[in-house]
């Protein structure tokens, strides 16, 4: 095995594959989003009341959550791949990675909370 160039510990093939898969999912979700928000509404204005009125359906929070998850993964993974190009030192990479991970976790938490809130708001 020819290892005399600086190979990194991880291949990157999984990240590449997941980025493509998440892109496809994101595209489908985006279509669904458009259909549900803008076409099924039949000219109704999309406002707070409309959103609250939909939030009670079982599929609505599920769709929202899937959207949140894939968009976060796809976006952060994309940013990470760019950062990786420009940071070669291990410690910087670790720092950036941790930062992105933290941002991801925080946003996931906040987002999930919002979806739950919406759903329970309707239920209540």
């Amino acid at each position: 095995m020819n290892k005399d160039f600086k190979q990194t510990s991880r291949s990157g093939s999984l990240a590449w594959l997941l980025q493509r898969i998440s892109a496809v999912i994101l595209f489908i979700l985006l279509l669904l989003h458009f259909v549900t928000y803008h076409f099924l509404g039949k000219g109704q204005a999309v406002d707070y009341h409309w959103v609250v009125s939909k939030a009670g359906n079982w599929w609505f929070p599920l769709l929202q959550f899937a959207f949140l998850l894939t968009a976060l993964y796809h976006g952060l993974n994309g940013v990470w791949s760019v950062l990786e190009d420009y940071t070669s030192s291990r410690s910087w990479r670790l720092l950036w990675y941790s930062l992105l991970l933290t941002v991801g976790v925080v946003l996931l938490f906040v987002g999930t909370l919002t979806i739950i809130k919406l759903y329970t708001l309707q239920a209540a």
Partner: peptide, 17 residues
Amino acid sequence: DDRLEIVNDKNGVWRCH
């Protein structure tokens, strides 16, 4: 197989965006 293993790396084909 050999070559694919070599290029399957962040410094290989995956740095191509």
